[in-house]
Design a protein around this nucleic acid. Structure first.
Lengths: 321, 321
DNA sequence: GGCATTCAGGACGTTTTCTGTCCTGAATAG
DNA sequence: CTATTCAGGACAGAAAACGTCCTGAATGCC
């Protein structure tokens, strides 16, 4: 029997739900002697996870941060939230973590109970769409393709290229990239014998073939091209200085942690450096400056022109009917 | 020795990193006989996690979605990404998951190795600030308080109320609420013997006292009041119809999954219903309409006025120098 | 300074489990 | 038809787990 194993796992789970537990209570829950509990705790310690103990009344055991992360025992609720959080992190273009976000997502995709998966899809689309400026990919699709990329599994899907008929593609997926306007899949198109990029929102009816392929290195030239096409738009930044007609102290007060990097110009003016990934995002940020505060944007003429255009359009759009 | 335990855990980890594994390979990695490996697989199955096996060449073991989620074994990288994703999910106001996001975050907070935690803080602030319209709370603070709320642990911190001196507070934290303008902590102020709300960006120097308290139910009247103050601003919505000067098909094409709910008005016009949590957020969304597309906003006069004000201010702000 | 509470861990005997080494079966792909 | 891969019974020696009993030691409270 794996009585032993399941008990230690349960113990880990318990330690993760409350900060502190008295030994007697844990022993009772697990239906073992306190002596055995102590041995279980030792076992967990031997695995490298640090559990601290304090003595005396108000003492007890607690799981602490150690060298490595213990196995996470999540409720289904939490798992759903985490999966959505990951999608957000991925689509937010958390540059550093984009690939890791996808490998983590693949882990969920593999084992998430189907009821939970349904909830992820339902909640995920609403949240991700609302969230940021990027067209959100369907969570289900993202998960499926992330898994296929990770495992090197050939997929077949229907694709509707710009203005063209829908066609069926057989692709060896290589990686997923979030660009400004949406998600792209980079993969080897087996029918056309060439690397291609596919916009995720034009992909439908994906199904994994179960056939695995040997990883095919992106040729240097094309790789550069592909990455240029995607990474450029990910990393390109718009920087601007916003001169706010308000004292630095007030600005700190109202903007809270947004205020990072703001400096005083004079008693009534604050300089607030802003970086965004695109002009629309910059415009979105400016929208949050309180109505009572006047401001001025210092940026390249091109950026300013776009902002003016945007403002003019919005002014026209919002005339009373 | 807990050799046994650690091996099964390692096996679970391996099964989570690739879709499929051959038995011989797993056995080699774990340095046991294949017979023992089969027994380990059985143990995992006995725990309720479903691992499927297929025979013949190209066969192997794979972890599948079952009734319950197996313990997740994440790399530190993945954990960092996930923690940030959770913060995003929480601050994005994932309505359904707001509390779960925090309890999940608390789990991380408790066990995340300190190196990883540092990275979460560093990356987290930058991402969350850039992300959305809400003033982001420091991830560290959020995590700390989430933990204290979950465990019913009294905390002490310094608080600088609006325009007042900084004071020291001793509080029994009850819950964290994300409102439009930022995060709030609801707690019982022990010095004032009353329920209070605290803006997170005015809290500093938090430290947990280690003293636990019995959960004190929010009195109905006050609870209503508190929740009104916060939930109202969370749930209040701004709705508008945007009339886009472009055919529905084109709009679908360009807006992809954003286009949900859009309907055709005539050959050249598309109606796009938008809901946002506030006018600034609405303005932020409008910013993403491509420059070449003209549009018109149908909404209450109040909303329109705010949009006009915003547009006028931006136009002034973006004049060339 | 006592006293209750709580973790720590050695010793021991019995019971159970685990592992490797055989083996035979059965499904599957080419 | 054959090679490959999972499945699982039997067996014996080694190892571990568990409960019971006990002594220490830290801690907070009165």
């Amino acid at each position: 029997m794996a009585e032993n194993l399941s008990r230690v796992l349960a113990l880990l789970g318990l330690l993760q739900t409350h900060r502190q537990w008295r030994g007697s209570e844990l022993a009772a829950r697990l239906e073992v002697t306190e002596r055995t509990l102590r041995r279980d705790i030792d076992r967990i310690r031997e695995l490298g996870y640090s559990v601290a103990a304090s003595r005396g009344p108000a003492g007890g055991y607690r799981l602490e941060s150690g060298a490595t992360l213990p196995p996470l025992l999540l409720s289904e609720e939490e798992a759903v939230t985490m999966a959505i959080g990951l999608q957000l992190a991925a689509s937010e273009g958390l540059d550093d973590g984009q690939q890791t976000a996808l490998t983590a997502l693949a882990k969920f995709e593999q084992v998430l109970p189907s009821a939970a998966r349904a909830r992820v899809n339902a909640l995920g689309t609403s949240v991700t769409t609302a969230a940021a400026g990027r067209a959100a990919a369907s969570p289900a699709l993202l998960g499926q393709l992330a898994l296929a990329c990770r495992d090197g599994e050939r997929v077949r899907f229907r694709y509707r290229a710009h203005g063209a008929e829908e066609t069926s593609r057989s692709v060896e997926p290589s990686s997923l990239v979030a660009a400004d306007r949406g998600w792209y899949l980079i993969g080897w198109d087996r029918d056309r014998d060439a690397w291609r990029t596919f916009r995720l929102d034009r992909i439908s009816a994906v199904f994994p073939t179960g056939v695995h392929f040997a990883a095919r290195p992106l040729p240097a030239a094309s790789a550069a091209e592909f990455l240029a096409a995607s990474v450029e738009s990910v990393q390109s930044q718009v920087t601007a200085d916003v001169l706010l007609r308000m004292p630095l102290a007030d600005m700190r007060e109202q903007f809270a942690s947004w205020a990072v990097g703001a400096t005083r110009v004079d008693d009534l003016t604050t300089r607030w450096p802003v970086t965004a990934r695109s002009v629309p995002q910059l415009a979105g940020l400016l929208a949050w400056i309180p109505p009572s505060v006047d401001y001025e944007v210092v940026a390249t003429e091109e950026v300013l022109a776009q902002l003016r255009g945007h403002a003019a359009r919005m002014a026209r759009a919002a005339t009373s009917q």
